[in-house]
Amino acid sequence: VLLLKIRATRSCRGISLKTQELYALVFICRYLDLFYSYISLYNTVMKVTYLATAFSIVRYMRFDKVVRQTYDKEQDTFRYIFLIAPCALLALVLNHRFSPTEVLWTFSIYLEAVAILPQLVLMQRTQNIDNLTANYVALLGAYRGFYILNWIYRFATEKHYRQWIVWISGVAQTALYADFFYYYALCWKANQRLQLPA
């Protein structure tokens, strides 16, 4: 959806580069297992797709002659360090196994949960949020939200399915969107363009 917006409108107005770069980092740290484990063709294809789209978006926003001029750097002020440092620290302390790949994987889980924050802050500052941006954020929130249903199903049907780090992070991630979803639903019902209160 986001690539569609950027390519079709030749603009990344209202999109946080910080959030996009955090997602690229999340996928790098999480999908290192592409090199040493195979789950299914679907799983591999999706991992490669996420990496490719994340890097493509960052490339457009940073280097495309037209698109980069529509990036509002002054408004996108969230500091990386405030998200990366606590997640890194937490991953070092709270993990299933203290190995490099496992700690990086855990870090990616924590970081993904909060990676939307720069985007949410930027949207609060944006007067006219375009529909594609609003829909993109809604879909991103719904994506992890729907996992919760899948986790409940798997917990009930699979014997050794215990993933508390993933569950807590996923629920926290979804909760961060609660406020956004509330206003998204209100505006959708009223058939109005999304506006977030300051």
Partner: peptide, 10 residues
């Protein structure tokens, strides 16, 4: 599949 085994979700 244990908790620290293969992570089969995306």
């Amino acid at each position: 599949q244990g908790p620290a085994g293969s992570h089969d979700e995306l």
